[in-house]
Every structure is written in C-alpha cells, then in structure tokens.
Amino acid sequence: NKFNKELQWATWEILNLPNLNEEQVKAFIDSLKDDPSQSANLLAEAKKLNDAQA
C-alpha cells in the first residue's frame, strides 16, 4: 500500500543521512513506525536537522 512504500522510502532516506547521530535516527524511525502517515513530514524534519548539523 501507499503508506508502506512511503514508510520504506523515508526509513531508507533517514538511515542514510550522514549528520544524524544514532539516537536521532532511532527517534525518527520510531516516530515513523508510530505514525506512517507522517512519513513525508518526518523525512523533511530529519533532512532539516541533518542540514543544520552539517
């Protein structure tokens, strides 16, 4: 289903952001699991944090 694909993509993207630490990655992944419908928003937040920590 649509959410599953978005969830998988967002998870992969977050796991490959170079500037997030392990705790941050885990928090984002946990949030994705809690509410897959928010995957696009969570991914945007993760990318923002990644850029801020570059």
Rank of each mutant, 00 (worst) to 15 (best):
P18L: 09
Q38R: 12
S31W: 10
Q53D: 03
F28T: 01
S31A: 12
V25I: 11
N50P: 00
S31Y: 07
A44D: 07
N4Y: 13
A46K: 00
K5F: 04
F28R: 00
A46L: 02
I29Y: 03
V25A: 10
E23M: 12
E45N: 10
K47R: 10
D51I: 08
A40I: 09
K48P: 00
F3Y: 10
A46Q: 00
K5V: 07
K2Q: 15
A40E: 07
T11S: 06
S31R: 15
A52D: 09
K5M: 03
L32Q: 01
W9N: 05
K33E: 10
K26L: 10
K2P: 11
L15T: 10
F28H: 01
A54M: 10
I14T: 01
Q8K: 09
L42V: 14
E22G: 07
Q38S: 11
D51H: 11
Q53E: 04
Q24E: 03
D34H: 11
Q53L: 09
Q24I: 03
K26E: 06
N19S: 07
N21Y: 11
D51W: 13
A10M: 07
L43A: 06
L43H: 03
N1Y: 01
Q53H: 05
E23P: 06
D51F: 13
E23Q: 14
E22R: 10
A54P: 06
I29K: 03
K48G: 05
I14E: 01
K26Y: 11
N41E: 09
K5P: 14
D35Q: 09
N1G: 09
Q8I: 12
S37K: 07
D30M: 15
W9V: 09
K5I: 05
I14L: 12
E6S: 04
A44I: 09
A40M: 15
L17I: 01
A10F: 15
F28Y: 06
S31Q: 13
E6V: 11
A46V: 02
S31D: 07
E45V: 13
S39Y: 15
I14G: 01
K33L: 14
K48M: 12
Q38T: 05
F3W: 07
D35I: 04
D35L: 05
N41Q: 12
E45K: 14
L32N: 00
K48E: 08
A52Y: 11
L20N: 00
A44N: 09
L42G: 01
N41Y: 15
A27V: 10
W9T: 05
A27T: 12
S37M: 07
N21I: 07
K26G: 05
E22Q: 11
K47I: 08
E6K: 04
D35G: 03
N19I: 01
A27G: 12
A46G: 02
D34I: 10
Q53T: 05
L43Q: 02
I29W: 03
P18Q: 08
I14Q: 01
Q24W: 02
S31N: 08
I29G: 01
Q8E: 15
L15V: 05
A54F: 10
A44L: 12
D34Y: 11
I29N: 02
D51E: 13
E13Y: 15
F28E: 00
E13P: 01
A40N: 08
D30H: 14
D30A: 15
I14M: 04
D30P: 00
W12S: 06
N21F: 10
E6Q: 07
Q38H: 08
E45L: 14
D51T: 09
P18M: 09
K33R: 10
T11V: 09
A40T: 08
Q8L: 13
E13Q: 15
L17N: 01
K26V: 07
P18N: 07
E13S: 10
K33M: 14
F3M: 11
A46F: 02
N4S: 06
F28I: 04
K5N: 11
E45M: 15
L15H: 08
L7V: 11
K47H: 08
E6W: 15
L7N: 03
I14A: 01
A27H: 12
Q24D: 03
Q38K: 12
L17T: 00
A46M: 02
L20S: 00
V25R: 14
N19Q: 05
I29P: 00
S37Y: 06
N50D: 05
E22A: 13
A54E: 09
F3S: 12
F3L: 13
Q8T: 07
A10L: 08
T11L: 14
N50F: 01
A10K: 03
L15N: 08
S31P: 01
A54W: 10
L42D: 00
D30S: 14
A52W: 09
L32H: 01
A54T: 10
D35P: 01
F3A: 14
I14N: 01
N41S: 11
A10V: 12
A54V: 08
E6N: 05
N1L: 03
E22L: 10
L42I: 13
L15Y: 11
V25N: 02
N16A: 10
I29R: 03
S39E: 03
K33S: 09
N4G: 12
P36W: 06
D51M: 13
A46I: 02
F3T: 14
Q53I: 07
F3I: 14
Q38E: 06
D30K: 14
N4W: 15
Q24P: 00
F28L: 04
A40Y: 14
K48L: 11
Q53S: 05
N19P: 00
L42P: 01
N21R: 12
W9A: 12
T11Q: 05
S39G: 06
E13T: 14
Q24S: 02
E45W: 12
W9L: 13
K5Y: 06
S31H: 10
A52H: 10
A52I: 11
F3H: 14
D35M: 07
L49R: 04
I29T: 04
L49E: 03
L42Y: 14
S37W: 07
D30E: 11
L42A: 05
E13H: 11
W9M: 12
N19L: 04
L32R: 00
A10E: 02
N16K: 13
N16E: 04
D34G: 12
L32F: 03
L43S: 03
N50I: 01
W12E: 06
L32S: 01
L20R: 00
L42W: 07
S39R: 06
T11I: 14
Q53W: 06
L49G: 01
K48F: 11
A54Y: 08
A27D: 06
L49T: 06
V25F: 03
E13R: 11
N4R: 04
K26P: 00
L49P: 00
W12H: 05
E23N: 10
P18F: 09
L32W: 02
A44K: 12
E6T: 06
S39D: 02
L17A: 01
P18W: 08
L17D: 00
A10H: 05
N50L: 01
Q8D: 04
N16W: 04
D35E: 07
K26I: 10
A27R: 13
N1E: 12
F3V: 14
N41V: 12
N1I: 05
A44R: 11
S31E: 08
E6I: 14
A40V: 09
S37G: 09
W12N: 05
S31M: 13
N21G: 08
A46D: 00
N16I: 05
A40W: 15
S39F: 15
A52P: 02
K2W: 15
N1V: 04
D35S: 07
V25S: 08
P36K: 03
D34N: 12
L17Y: 04
